[in-house]
């Protein structure tokens, strides 16, 4: 029972939605670039002093990080397991398992729905790259800095950095376009044909919101509106 496809999918849904919540908060934080360096760095500092003195320095952040990490691991574990079961069930062919090439796009499925898995991998690779860039500053296009604000502004003044983030965010957008709908449906929220439409609209809105919301700062910086 615990390893059933349905339970795995529910676990994916919950972990996925946690990640979405994180992204919404992260996006809100990012938009603070428009409020200037002080506000942005202050926000970053605030993240670390949250909950003090109850929690040690960066304690709350670490709690968030642990939750995120657990969610990501669970999410990826379930994704890989379901992916494997799909491959076993369809001799590896998935939606492309017929000789006929006349309906490779299926009947009604969305582009988003069949890019979930490779899209997810793209996102995972991006996150590593992103952490190396903006969290640890191991890679520092445009120059390293102790100030998150400066790291951001330095990075996004370079066109190919913006481009790499754009690609990643499109992947995130597609991932969420199908993912949010699927998560809610798997948690039981799809109760009728009408509700199915509503949930899909909601998913599109969330996906657009997150994609656009994240992309505003990099482009604003690139075009010199910030910094």
């Amino acid at each position: 029972m615990w390893r059933s496809t349905i339970v795995l999918k529910v676990a994916m849904a919950i972990s996925g939605l946690i990640l979405v919540l994180y992204l919404l908060a992260h996006m809100y934080g990012n938009l603070k670039v428009f409020a200037g360096q002080e506000a942005f760095d202050g926000y970053s500092h605030h993240l670390r002093t949250m909950g003090e003195p109850l929690l040690p320095y960066a304690g709350a952040l670490w709690i968030i990080r642990v939750v995120l990490l657990v969610a990501v691991i669970l999410h990826i574990y379930c994704a890989v397991t379901l992916w494997r079961r799909m491959r076993l069930a369809t001799a590896g062919g998935g939606g492309q398992r017929y000789e006929s090439t006349k309906a490779r796009r299926g009947n009604q499925r969305t582009y988003a729905s069949f890019t979930m898995r490779w899209g997810g991998v793209v996102i995972a690779l991006f996150v590593v790259y992103h952490l190396l860039h903006l969290t640890w500053n191991t890679i520092s296009p445009g120059g390293a800095s102790g100030s998150p604000y400066e790291r951001v502004v330095n990075g996004f003044s370079i066109w190919w950095v913006v481009l790499s983030y754009t690609v990643a965010l499109l992947a995130v957008g597609f991932h969420l376009r199908h993912g949010v709908w699927a998560a809610l449906a798997s948690l039981g929220a799809n109760t009728s044909q009408r509700r199915r439409r509503h949930l899909n609209v909601l998913a599109t809105v969330v996906a657009l919101l997150i994609t656009v919301g994240f992309l505003i700062p990099p482009f604003a910086i690139l075009f010199g509106l910030v910094g």
Binding site: M1, T5, I6, K9, A89, G106, Q108, H178, A182
Partner: peptide, 22 residues
């Protein structure tokens, strides 16, 4: 039923909806 479904080797549902269309 779900356990039997999985034991038979069917894949999991990721809410794609091709089934309904067919």
């Amino acid at each position: 039923m779900v356990d039997q479904h999985d034991a038979e080797g069917f894949g999991g549902c990721t809410q794609i909806g091709e089934c309904t269309a067919a």
